[in-house]
């Protein structure tokens, strides 16, 4: 493959695992995902009493023979899944301390999941956000669409402050049907505002997954000598004696992570704090396995 963020071995290993939606999906194409509507799939849903006007072909004659009552067999409708990968392209995503750059890690996740989704007949789309740019690649099931998606990811150049919150609100308003929204960001924004954006998505009944990307160095803050820290988003600089502020830094970070986690929990989002030195395969396998319906385990 011509894209560095795609790993053939990884994709072939994960190919056997389906990507399931945690909430019923609405779609105009029959697929493998549950729909809130009753349909004609092979998946039995429930019995209900016959009412005049029902299709007699759906009467359960065996039940009639046993109970002398008419019952209609209902089956779940299957539909396809529409996934949106929201990739934060702010300057902070460029940071590469002890792991790879956060944006590169985000590329790998978005590309791998997109590939798997399209491969199983679902639609994958992309939403890239900065404070100035909100680039969207609409979801599509076509294999040819993947190349456009990968190309967009490849050309991504993170810079400036984050536009994640605006992007999430836009997606919540814009997408009329239920969708699988995967957020890939370091979430360096106000947790309160982030909570509002997630609640907006939840209100629209979207299935939300958050990959919170952090560099190991950002967590450990392991520095010996004084450093001049230059902000990747607005280029402000600060000379700091790390051992003087390490404790306060870690306390502030811990509070932030706890708050973000709580906000995701409130919005019923699937939250994962991921450091960029984490191997991708076990991460995605665990992610996908956890999403499988329990009956399929």
């Amino acid at each position: 493959m011509k894209y560095s963020f795609l790993d053939n071995t990884l994709l072939s290993r994960l190919g056997s695992l389906p990507i399931d939606a945690r909430v019923p999906m609405l779609g105009n194409v029959a697929g493998k995902h549950r729909s809130p509507h009753r349909g004609s799939s092979v998946e039995f849903a429930e019995y209900r009493k016959y009412v005049p006007g029902d299709d007699t072909r759906r009467l359960d004659w065996k039940a009639f023979a046993r109970s002398d009552r008419f019952y209609i067999k209902e089956f779940e409708a299957d539909t396809n899944l529409r996934a949106y990968f929201v990739v934060d392209a702010s300057g902070s995503m460029k940071f590469a301390g002890q792991g790879e750059a956060k944006i590169q890690y985000a590329r790998r996740i978005a590309a791998s999941l997109s590939y798997l989704l399209v491969n199983q007949g679902d639609a994958a789309g992309l939403s890239i956000c900065t404070d100035k740019l909100h680039l969207e690649v609409p979801p599509s099931r076509r294999a040819a669409h993947l190349d456009r998606l990968f190309s967009t990811l490849d050309n991504l150049q993170p810079s400036g402050p984050t536009g994640l919150l605006e992007a999430l609100h836009t997606i919540a308003e814009k997408i009329s049907q239920r969708a699988f929204v995967v957020i890939l960001s370091d979430l360096f924004t106000e947790p309160e505002a982030l909570g509002d954006a997630l609640q907006h998505l939840r209100y629209r009944k979207h299935d939300i997954s958050v990959f919170h990307l952090m560099d190991p160095l950002e967590i450990s803050f392991d520095f010996e000598r004084p450093h001049r820290f230059v902000d990747l988003e607005d280029q402000t600089a600060l000379v700091v004696e790390p051992n003087l502020v390490a404790e306060e830094y870690k306390t502030a970070l811990r509070d932030f992570l706890a708050e973000v986690r709580a906000k995701c929990h409130d919005a019923a989002a699937d939250y994962q704090l991921v450091t960029t030195d984490t191997p991708l395969e076990p991460l995605l396998r665990d992610f996908l396995t956890a999403r499988l319906p329990k009956s399929k385990h």
Binding site: E218, E233, L253
Partner: peptide, 21 residues
């Protein structure tokens, strides 16, 4: 005087930590 320059992302925590300490 011998500090190193580093491009840093998690600036909001650093600013808060510096203020408090």
């Amino acid at each position: 005087r011998r500090h190193k320059t580093i491009q840093w992302a998690a600036m909001q925590f650093l600013l808060k930590a510096t203020r408090e300490s």
